[in-house]
Each structure stands twice: as structure tokens, then as C-alpha cells.
Simulated scan of single mutants.
Amino acid sequence: MKHRRRNTALLLLSATLVVSAYVHALKGADARPPTSRPDPAAAPSGSPSDSTGAADPVQAARSALDEVGPRDGRYALAVEDLTTGHSVTHGSIEERFVSASIIKVDILAALLLRAQDHGTPLTTEQQRRAAAMICFSDNVAAQELWIEIGRRQGLDAANRRLGFSPAHAGQRGVWGLTRTTVLDQLTLLRRVFTEDSPLTAESRAYARSLMSNVFEEHDWGVSAASSPAGSFALKNGWLPRETTHLWVVNSIGMVEHGGHTLLVAVLTDRQATQEAGVSLIERTTTTAVEALTGGS
């Protein structure tokens, strides 16, 4: 399990600075859009080997993932390289998994859309709750924001705007048990990390900043694929199921690897322990990212 050690006091200061930066951004202090990335919707999922005989990175990634083991329970992976436009999927990509705490990114996106619609920035209290929900995975803060966005009806409305599939709509029950697909999670990451989004540049920057400042005990998962000098931004989810005593373990986010910027979503369930789920996520993520970027 890979951790990037972060001083807790500095993390709290970072969260405070994120809130301050968000307020200034909405006032127009820095309205510059992020660096333009290729449009993932228009990018090819792969290309045949070129005339030099170079291996197709998509096929290389799929072949490498086929060889990863052991792999207990279910899993689904989706990776998109924003630098090249290549993408790869693997596992149970059309099946639904329990979200656990990765849904907190979706709740944040719904909250930001709601603020945009009202033409007002998040209040100080909303910012405090958002930072607690994403950086520390605080469930009380998530519940409070869940109520603010209009619960299930509000989330479904936001997800239609974000481009989620119908598989995510019309569910009931508590937010942590919402079922999702890995492809919908990749869609959510595109809305947070690219300009192809109903979220404004300021809203996207705010969400990315929170995901870049998660508590050090929560920075496992897709971050394992980032280069030593590369940055990452993520949100993880983990939940033991009372009926089976098996674990749901998920991780979604952005990693920088070998000069590439990649979006990664991995969902797992029926894991014997949380550690087993984390290991599966980190092995498959690292395998896919290294193969997709040519081992750079």
C-alpha cells in the first residue's frame, strides 16, 4: 500500500488555502482555464501499430491486465490517457458496483452545479463540509451536503447534466450504497479534470484541489501509478458488507506518469479484506498505466 506522507497540520492549512482560492477564483482573481486537453469523447480508444512496428499501447495494456493475478471477487477498471487519447477498460465494466465513499465526488459536483445555477459561491460552511467530505472522507459532512443537494432527486438531476448513464438513476437508499459503473466514474472524472464539463473552470479547480489534498491515510489506490515526481488527485471508498463480511474497495482519480496525465477508475467488491482490495487496485492500476504510457 503506497502512501505519500503528508503532515496533518499542513494538510489542514492546504484545505484552508483551497477554500480561500475558491472564493478568489469566483471573484475573478484568476479566471484562466486549465491547460487544454484532448477531448476524450472524440479521442480514439486505440490505434493499430504504426509503420515503425511499435506495439499498440491499448492492446499492450489489455494483455498485461490479463496476466495480473490473483484476482478474487469482482473488479472493473477504466483508464484514459488525456495526453494521447488512448484508453483501456478491463473486467466487469458494464456491471454495477456499490459506490461507498467515491460517491462523495459526485455529491461535490452536484453541490457545485447547484451553486453555479444560483450564481453564488459556496458558503463558508459548505466549503468546510466539502473539504471534510473529500479530504477526510467525513460521513457527517457528506450527509449534510447530501441533504443540501436534494438527496436522490438532486443527485439524479446533476448526473443527467454530467452525462451519466441511466444505470445510475432512480435508485433508493442511503448515498453510500448507490450503485455505479466504472464507465460512469470515468465520465465523472472527465467532468472534473477536463473542459468537457458543465462545471465551470473555477468549480473544477476547486474539486481538483480538494482531491489533491486527501488525508495521508487515504491516499492509497490509483495514486500507486503516479511517477515519484508526478502529482495525483483521488477519492477512495471502502465498505465492509454486513451480510457477507466481504469488502467493497474503490479508487478514482487523476495521476501523472512519465509526462502523461491519466484518469483512472477501479471498482472492486467481494474482497476478503480491505487490504486485498487495495492491493488489487494498485496492481491493476500500475499495470494499466505503465503499459498504456509505453513503460515511461
Score class of each variant (00 low, 15 high):
Met1Thr: 14
Lys2Trp: 04
Lys2Gly: 05
Arg5Ser: 13
Asn7Trp: 13
Leu12Phe: 12
Val18Cys: 09
Val19His: 07
Ala25Lys: 04
Leu26Asp: 01
Pro34Lys: 04
Thr35Asp: 10
Thr35Phe: 10
Ser36Pro: 10
Ala41Gln: 13
Ala43Cys: 10
Pro44Gln: 05
Gly46Glu: 05
Ala55Phe: 04
Gln59Gly: 14
Ala60Ser: 13
Ala61Met: 07
Ala61Ile: 09
Ala64Asp: 07
Gly69Pro: 03
Gly69Asn: 05
Asp72Cys: 01
Asp81Gly: 06
Thr83Pro: 07
Thr84Ala: 11
His90Ser: 15
Gly91Asp: 01
Glu94Ser: 13
Glu94Pro: 00
Arg96Trp: 01
Ile102Pro: 00
Leu108Gly: 03
Leu111Gln: 11
Gln116Met: 06
Asp117Phe: 00
Pro121Asp: 03
Pro121Cys: 06
Glu125Thr: 14
Gln127Asp: 13
Arg129Asp: 12
Cys135Asp: 08
Ser137Ala: 15
Ser137Glu: 04
Val140Lys: 08
Ala141Ser: 12
Gln143Phe: 14
Trp146Leu: 03
Gly154Met: 08
Arg161Val: 09
Phe164Asp: 10
Pro166His: 07
Ala167Lys: 15
Ala167Leu: 14
Leu177Phe: 13
Thr178Gln: 11
Thr181Glu: 07
Val182Glu: 01
Val182Gly: 01
Gln185Arg: 03
Leu186Ala: 10
Thr187Glu: 11
Val192Tyr: 01
Glu202Gly: 14
Ser203Met: 03
Ser212Tyr: 02
Phe215Ser: 08
His218Pro: 00
Trp220Phe: 13
Val222Ala: 09
Ala225Cys: 11
Ser226Trp: 00
Ser227Gln: 07
Pro228Asp: 15
Ser231His: 15
Leu234Arg: 02
Asn236Ile: 09
Gly237Pro: 04
Trp238Ser: 13
Trp238Arg: 03
Leu239Asp: 02
Arg241Asp: 07
Thr243Arg: 12
His245Arg: 15
Ser251Gly: 09
Glu256Lys: 12
Gly258Asn: 09
Leu263Cys: 09
Val264Ile: 14
Val266Gly: 00
Val266Tyr: 01
Ala272Trp: 05
Glu275Lys: 10
Glu275Ile: 11
Glu275Thr: 12
Glu275Leu: 13
Ala276His: 06
Leu280Asp: 00
Glu282Cys: 09
Thr284Gln: 10
Thr285Tyr: 02
Thr287Asn: 04
Thr287Leu: 03
Ala291Cys: 10
